[in-house]
Design a protein around this nucleic acid. Structure first.
Length: 223
DNA sequence: AACAGCGACAACCGCCATTGC
DNA sequence: GGCAATGGCGGTTGTCGCTGT
């Protein structure tokens, strides 16, 4: 919780706290996913509207999938990137539950590794799997053996460390259960796995677990 | 056990587009 | 139509945890 005295000062930066997340979720419920600037002010979060929006879109939004991209998603990203280039938000729209940030991060990591592999292999054989010209200072997709880069997929499914607490999906399911929220409809089109969100209890085992229903029950001033 | 390297992810920044007045 | 406010997007950076040496 931000001390009132600090609210008028510079907006806070850095990682979001659990408390801030709760506060943001609460106020997004009140205001909807608009007017981030106002929401940021009214909520008492000492954050910029932009920061709030980003946090919501990339982390708190219901229906977000967590964990690694599936092989299907990887291939889709590669295909779409070949088609559209770095239009991450556009690509993200074709992958329900994934954010542009996530895809961007994936691509960056993926391409960096690929570039490294290519550097190594080009030392040995110049005719190896190189593709078309450079992009992002690295290279453009479209050629061949992209997604299935061995270690890339190996961790699939292992990452689901949901077990330790509430996931955003659980929270939203309970929120939605209490009110028919039509704005969540897109979520129903997919079968999202539980979200291994890091925020609800991945911390110390001993730390307080938040009950989403208690969140609903809390009056605003409790934040 | 300590350290370095690397991957994954969260978050910020700056620019551009859109919207409202 | 011009301008300011706000939102969206892409690029970049920082941090943390895991793994190999």
């Amino acid at each position: 919780m931000v001390p009132p005295a600090m609210e008028a000062t510079q907006p806070r930066k850095g990682p979001w706290t659990e408390q801030e997340d709760l506060q943001l979720v609460w106020y997004v419920r009140l205001f909807g996913e608009r007017r981030w600037d106002i929401l940021a002010k009214v909520s008492g979060l000492n954050r910029t509207g932009k920061s709030c929006r980003l946090r919501w879109v990339n982390y708190l939004h219901p229906g977000l999938k967590r964990g690694r991209l599936t092989p299907q998603e990887e291939r889709l990203v590669l295909d779409l990137h070949a088609k559209w280039g770095n239009r991450w938000s556009r690509i993200a729209r074709r992958l329900p539950g994934r954010t542009d940030n996530e895809i961007k991060n994936y691509w960056r990591t993926h391409m960096r590794r690929k570039a490294q592999e290519r550097n190594r292999s080009s030392c040995r054989s110049p005719s190896s799997s190189s593709v078309d010209g450079p992009q992002l200072g690295i290279e453009k997709p479209g050629g061949g053996s992209v997604a299935e880069g061995s270690s890339l997929i190996s961790g699939l499914g292992v990452n689901d460390e949901v077990a330790k607490g509430y996931t955003m999906d659980q929270i939203w399911n309970e929120i939605v259960a209490s009110e028919s929220a039509s704005w969540l409809s897109f979520e129903e089109e997919q079968d999202c796995p539980p979200l291994p969100s890091s925020m609800w209890g991945v911390e110390d085992e001993g730390t307080r677990m938040l009950n989403p229903m208690s969140l609903l029950a809390l009056p605003c001033h409790e934040f």
